[in-house]
Design a binder for these strands. Structure first.
Lengths: 132, 132
DNA sequence: CTCATTGCAAATGATTTGCAAGAAA
DNA sequence: TTTCTTGCAAATCATTTGCAATGAG
């Protein structure tokens, strides 16, 4: 757990982070809420959203966004790519070394100051590819 | 313009496609609506959304989605990457040969049947990188 | 004629926010 | 205490949808 002087260490925050880090699936805010509410029956969905947002901004977790789908969260900060099932929305880690596409061209690219890039794969997950 | 037996060639559809293909900026639905409404004062935003959706599904244009930002549309179907300004949201084409990251591994990747991948760059556009 | 399409307005749905009560430090 | 957080509910906001009227083929 991180200790930021301005952020208080609440039970809700602890449990949210703890449960997220326990998972390898990449839950949506609602999905994580459903898990956390088992330990903290009074917690609200708004609190989950607020904490996921704060944890993302402080760099403790990462937010995964795929087009217009619901955002998903990942407690693993190690650089890695993701693959998303176009049928059920499931997201998995890709077990391959992440690619560095910026070979050399770090600073000026199309007149832009390049800050980074993202690679995402999509396809049919093990379950969905059979049940067609 | 495509002619699908089930799709009618309306003035609205024509103008929407025509104006989109004229642009190299990648407008949002509202942005394109503002342009189209100059030629068709009675058109509704809903019609723009419906046509952009239909044109995307029939493969005439492509929809670009960046995280939770508004979707943007591109009349250019040639495979290419995009770079997005994290400050103003502007999106530009990347003038470099698109990458094929799936070298060999086409069919089974993490147990998934891989359908494709997306690469997106982000940074500060020419205007925003100076005005900091 | 038929039925895809439109304009309009209301509905969605994920995410955000205002506010008063509650709890870290 | 101080002020960050929470729970709750209402508000956002891009996008979607229902419906009766319109128009393409």
């Amino acid at each position: 757990m991180k200790e930021h002087p301005l952020h208080r260490n609440t039970k809700q925050r602890q449990v949210i982070l703890e449960e997220l880090q326990k998972l390898t699936s990449h839950p949506t805010a609602v999905g994580l809420y459903r898990i956390v509410v088992r330990r903290l029956p009074k917690i609200s969905l708004g609190t989950v959203y607020r904490n996921l947002d704060l944890l993302t901004k402080t760099g403790v977790i990462q937010k995964l966004e795929f087009g217009s789908e619901e955002a998903r969260f990942d407690g693993n900060l190690t650089p890695h790519h993701h693959i998303r099932c176009v049928k059920c929305g499931r997201v998995d880690d890709v077990h391959r070394p992440p690619l560095d596409l910026l070979g050399g061209v770090k600073d000026d690219f199309n007149g832009y100051h390049v800050l980074g890039h993202r690679v995402e794969f999509f396809g049919l997950c093990p379950k969905c590819k059979t049940s067609l």
